[in-house]
Amino acid sequence: MTPRITIDDLCFFYASSDEKPVFEHLSFQVSSGQVFCLLGPNGTGKSTLIKCLSGLLRPQQGTILLDGDDLSSLKPSSIAKKVGYVPQSQFSVFPFLVRDVVVMGRAAHLNNISSPKQRDYDIADEAIRTVGIAHIAERPCNNISGGEWQLVLIARALTQQPQILLLDEPTSHLDMGNQMRILEVISGLSRAGLTIIMASHFPDHAFLAAHQAAILKDRQFVAWGNPDEVINQANLQAAYGIDVRILFVADGVGRKICVPLSRAPALPG
């Protein structure tokens, strides 16, 4: 399979801090229909990497190719037609209706002085049905739950009709029911051919939904590849600094799970 997005030797540092880069020499590819799960401890640069891939931040070194086109040479509206970005959930200041938020995904397809037409609303409604939030389409967007809001943001990104979906911790702050619902939506979208890159705090999510996983720590990938190989005891211990066990649960589950343990086995007592 040809890669949909290719990252080569990527390096980024914030201009204000003259210290070390957030990450350097990152290289990886993701193909059509694949889910890439980006793991790593807090503050390690997962969101920064996602923002670089969405064109919001400009890396100082390295290239990002979308279907062979250099991301830095594309206009924001051209990027938005290829890449949908689902930010970390932040509620809207104004209580726009859910449908009106979702239709904002059409911005890149409309010129500056146009408003969305019936056709754009049709596309938005389709995205609303895809993620299963039709029942709240007419509700003000600050009158819905955190899980529903995350689905609204995914629907808005789908309304852009992108080939690549970037999700920045789509399951943070959600209860486990909503986490599973979001992951099911993500799996469904990847089966429909979308390339998905998501940052996550939960290694389990890589087992559940991802084809590839990578662990970012200290400016580098600790590991990158198949989730079964990447998510092992040694790598998670190195990344998160705690003892971890990976168990295979056979009975009616049939997958691996991560069990974090208290600090390190060396602790006295």
């Binding site: 969405s54 064109g55 919001l56 206009k75 924001p76 509206s77 051209s78 990027i79 938005a80 037609k81 890449v83 970005y85 930010p87 904002m104 995904g105 911005a107 890149a108 500056n112 808005r156 852009q160």
Partner: peptide, 8 residues
């Protein structure tokens, strides 16, 4: 968010 939606 606006920029990621393609707004200049």
């Amino acid at each position: 968010e606006a920029r990621s939606l393609g707004v200049n």
